[in-house]
Simulated assay, not measured.
Amino acid sequence: MASTSDDPRNFALREDSGEETSVFSGQIPRQAALKAARRLDPADSEAQASRESFRLREKGTKKLHIYEGWAWHEQAPEDKPDWMPETITQANVSKEGIEHLDEL
């Protein structure tokens, strides 16, 4: 079966040691990167958030997507659903580039 552009792709969070500790999915690398960035230690506001570099390897490829990400706490919107907490974690990312691994 051919894959379509709507199929989610999997991206593994890759540590400096080469170990892959978590997998995030998304149709594009940025979606997975935003999910990964939400797991960073959140600051009290976006202005105070420190940026951290991380790498995501697209599963089935040797491509490493390099991102800088940051996370912060924010008040939930007033029209939030009942299950959503009062404070939520927001994140943003900036793509730094792509590297190609020699081996897996």
Rank of each mutant, 00 (worst) to 15 (best):
K95D: 12
G97Y: 02
M84R: 15
A43Q: 04
P8S: 09
A36S: 14
L34N: 03
S22G: 01
D6G: 02
S5V: 07
A37T: 10
F11E: 00
A36E: 15
S94H: 12
P42R: 11
L56E: 12
R57P: 00
D6P: 00
D102Q: 03
V93T: 14
S22I: 08
E103H: 02
N92S: 13
S53Q: 10
W70R: 15
R51S: 02
T21F: 11
R51G: 01
R57M: 04
P42H: 13
A12C: 11
M84C: 04
L101S: 02
S94N: 12
E46C: 04
F24N: 01
S5R: 13
E52P: 00
A36V: 09
A12T: 14
S5H: 09
K63I: 12
S94R: 14
R38A: 07
D16Y: 12
A43Y: 11
E78F: 06
I28M: 14
A2W: 05
Q48F: 13
I98N: 14
I98R: 14
F11T: 00
K62T: 04
A43H: 09
E78P: 00
R55T: 15
A49I: 09
E103P: 00
S94V: 08
V23S: 00
I66A: 00
N10C: 03
E74I: 00
T4W: 00
A49D: 08
E52M: 05
E46P: 01
I66Q: 09
G97V: 08
W83D: 06
